[in-house]
Design a protein around this nucleic acid. Structure first.
Lengths: 137, 137
DNA sequence: CCTCTAAGTGTTATATTATTACATACGTGA
DNA sequence: TCACGTATGTAATAATATAACACTTAGAGG
């Protein structure tokens, strides 16, 4: 354990603010709003919106979370860092959001994109649905 | 032509506020922000944000315009009222937005959706691209 | 013609979401 | 040790959107 700093670990380590925001999103699993995150993390030392937005921006950039544009919310990425390509279903009745893991859908979109000669850097797909439990009731 | 009022003609006529907002979006062709619309239409008698948002909401509902969620902007629908199914490309460099008219893409998405047993009521697809002129320069 | 109703209007105030600006700290590599 | 990139903390403010309430209008239908 003598020479512990062979090369920088910085790149894979998050700062404190980034960490606590990521943890909250991870534990929640649901989309959360910036100001809700702020309120939730007051006790951890977060005091201003900017601290939250900066952490969120960084986490989005790292592909660890996604922003769901139509509801101004942020959610943990459950596709092991899909690097800003997002596809979600949002229930119109109960608001529940799910990240679409279905490879066929996302691959299909990629194919469509290729076929149509679109040079995409990233995309954001939001499908409004009626979720199973809402469909039943 | 004696009984001219067989059924209401109301449905196809817009109110004054809806009309002037739609006209502005039509003439512009670009995505516009709500408060820009407000400023632009002060002289036409629009005084408050709510007047703009109400008109925008109605026009979105009618499928005459779309909201582009990731830039909080509204744009005329050039697919003859696609009823809230939207697909756009947004240039990451210059910000130019285009509604995707390509039937293959939108049909393809519909197919994917069917194949994946998603019961979609509507969708919002935002593809970030590098547009032709930006690619050259 | 009269009245009921749904939809729209106008206005004030306020809520929600996000950024600017600026001074400071901290770690890494030269 | 210094410079640089990145993050931090804080206050102020900008940008986006909605709530609440009183009032008007247009068309349906008697």
């Amino acid at each position: 354990m003598s020479s512990t700093h062979t090369h920088s670990k910085k790149s894979q380590s998050l700062t404190k603010n980034q960490r606590i925001v990521l943890d909250l999103l991870q534990n929640s699993g649901e989309p959360l709003k910036a100001y809700f995150i702020l309120d939730s993390l007051k006790k951890e030392g977060l005091n201003s919106p900017l601290q939250v937005y900066r952490a969120l921006d960084k986490l989005v950039e790292l592909g660890k979370i996604h922003k769901i544009e139509s509801i101004n919310s942020f959610i943990i990425c459950n596709n092991s860092n899909c690097a800003s390509n997002t596809a979600f279903t949002i229930c119109e009745r109960c608001g529940k959001v799910k990240e679409i893991k279905n490879k066929y859908l996302t691959d299909g979109v990629s194919d469509l994109v290729k076929d149509n000669k679109l040079e995409i850097t990233r995309y954001n797909l939001e499908f409004y649905v009626l979720c199973k439990s809402c469909k039943i009731n």
